[in-house]
Amino acid sequence: MQRMNWRGLAAVGLALGALTVAACGEDDESSGDAGTTTTEARTFDAGTTMKKLQDEGEMTVGVKFDVPPFGAKNPTSGDVEGFDIDFAKAIADELGVKPKYIEALSDNRIAFLKDGTADLILSTMTINAERDEEIDFSEPYFIAKGRILVKKSNSDIGGVDDLAGKNVCTALGSTYEETLKKQAPKAKLKLVDSYSECLELIQNGAVDAVSTDDVILTGMIIQDDTLKLVDDEPLTTEPYGAGIKEGDKAFQAFVNDVFDKYKSDGRWAKAYQKWVGQYTGEKQEPPTMTLQEAIDLTK
């Protein structure tokens, strides 16, 4: 009897093992159809980040959790979704690994790359010369414009010059911290950890304006239609880049490679329409700006 039990257990164990393997196989397929074109995972040389990630079977990506439509946690499903997430999936698919998302705030994402907490950052991060000293970037994968958000009832603020003396919210560690100090030196800056806090502050009247990338502000208008963008020249051009650990040229080339495919096979346009275009009604071509041009823009 005792022996039978052990055999039975072994059989159950084997069956479970087989199921797990089957489940994993299924998983790969399901993450495949999210990115449409999955072929056999490529093989890479030992010592590269790509090989390391394949061995681990998982890629940790730092994304925004509260910035629709780029990276936001869906309150119903609990999944993180958005434009950045779709691109992260495409990169993970190419490696044949599972993407794991962690929240990267404007303030901590560079530290995450440096200390290895995240393998890749896709969190509405603008490429600039200062950051390029600390980490490496992919080619620009999205071009945002710096804009100002106010309440519809607000008629005082018609442009960046009107921000003098006003309370303006933006995220600590974002490029707007500096942009606003330069372009609106008399504005009273409210630096918070996340844009959802800026949304709260403009809704409850603690600040008069929020300034950041147009797509992030559009996300706020989707949530609250009593807000509007100030109709004025953009403050800045903000090319988004994927953040890669400083000096990892092979991984950088790999990400750029995936991005080229992502653009040319129409996945970029699909993602744009899904996350941005359908709300703004605007059309946009995939960015053609090079990384060097993006860096020069901020010099």
């Binding site: 404007s106 303030d107 560079i110 530290a111 440096k114 200062e130 950051r131 000293e133 600390e134 600590l172 560690g173 911290e177 500096e178 630096l191």
Partner: peptide, 14 residues
């Protein structure tokens, strides 16, 4: 702490 974090985000000297 807030200002230290502002310095950190300006200088990247965590």
């Amino acid at each position: 702490l807030k200002n230290a974090r502002i310095v950190q985000s300006d200088t990247f000297k965590t």
